[in-house]
Design a protein around this nucleic acid. Sequence first.
DNA 1: GTCTATAACCGGATAGAC
DNA 2: GTCTATCCGGTTATAGAC
Lengths: 214, 214
Amino acid sequence: MTPGARGGTFPTREKIKEAAGDIFLHKGYAAARMQEIADRAGVNKALIYYYFSSKDSLFEAIIREASEELVMNLSDLFALQEKDPHRLIKRLVQVHFHFLLEHPQLPCLLVRELSSDNPLPKKVLADVIGRFSRGNIARLQQLLDQAAAAKQLRRTNVQQLLWSIFSLNVFSFISWPVIETVWPEIGTFDQAMRKREKAVVDLILSSLLPRRSD
Amino acid sequence: MTPGARGGTFPTREKIKEAAGDIFLHKGYAAARMQEIADRAGVNKALIYYYFSSKDSLFEAIIREASEELVMNLSDLFALQEKDPHRLIKRLVQVHFHFLLEHPQLPCLLVRELSSDNPLPKKVLADVIGRFSRGNIARLQQLLDQAAAAKQLRRTNVQQLLWSIFSLNVFSFISWPVIETVWPEIGTFDQAMRKREKAVVDLILSSLLPRRSD
DNA sequence: GTCTATAACCGGATAGAC
DNA sequence: GTCTATCCGGTTATAGAC
């Protein structure tokens, strides 16, 4: 029987997954070494192959798990049935941003692997976003259209808006190593990210409001 | 004597660099294979080592060259001495976006390598951005402050603004493989990027304008 | 379940002929 | 300058003892 099939807890398997997450996230697939994963997990390298059939299948387990968590977070938000688009979008930006705070290296990993030959990360991410989109996007566009008709917000394309939110949030984390280097006075990671979250929320919400000239 | 030291043209060396650019950009450093670079360049693998001492030095040549080009583009823009901050920022977004259109894979490469152990990409990029920043940023902040004092624009932090522009533009390209998959009705790469550029310019400029409530 | 030992392979780099 | 042939270290993966 495959280990893990019966549903108890498997500390060794979990330790390996945790270690693999750290290493893959930090190095990317190609540069990650099974020996290093084994060392960090405190187990023998051969033991990894007892639980996972190959480097590939271990990698898949890692990214699939992280992606599932994001979908759940976003779905929870929409389940709240917030009616005010302004507040909903503010929360959307914040929920996404805080998810990234919990997984600051995930965006780098996905970006690294998205343009590689390995089709797996793209498949997983497209699947995740696709599941989130179904329903939620149409509903958000409807709220935006109503608010625009009432002159409360500018007319806005929901896909471009989500693309922008996604870009601003994810890239805040991806670009951190560079920002830290070229702009040291911004302070520690935590300080900088608190400021950054405010700036992103402010940018997105400002762009939604009607202009003085409207 | 090192090949290339006398300044003539070196078609083979150039062919290798071009091929290496394609492969490194597509795969990242660790996954790139010297054999594959040789095949694409149409030369023997050993010949690469005649022109470049190692995989490392070939990689450095590639990213340094691309980065230099971006700095030149941005410096040209600021050399124009545009006085209207609204127009300057619009041009800034567009120049950066069009540079990325010419090098659509560069952002992915830099992101991939930035979080790796190789310190080179970070050094190169920090150097490039640092050189652009010197002077230009202070001047832009001054223009923004003047416009804010005259109530033409909202009060804006220039670093957060540049961070946002950088994020929106770069991530448009990085996320393309995903966007294309989850949102196929957006059309071809060219069509989508034309629309995306408009959306980014619009988002940034909207956020700068005073709100109706100000 | 966990280990040691090793097979099998791959890829960067070099030697040397032409 | 360009090629063929090869070396050598490192990495994934497996065999088999305990």
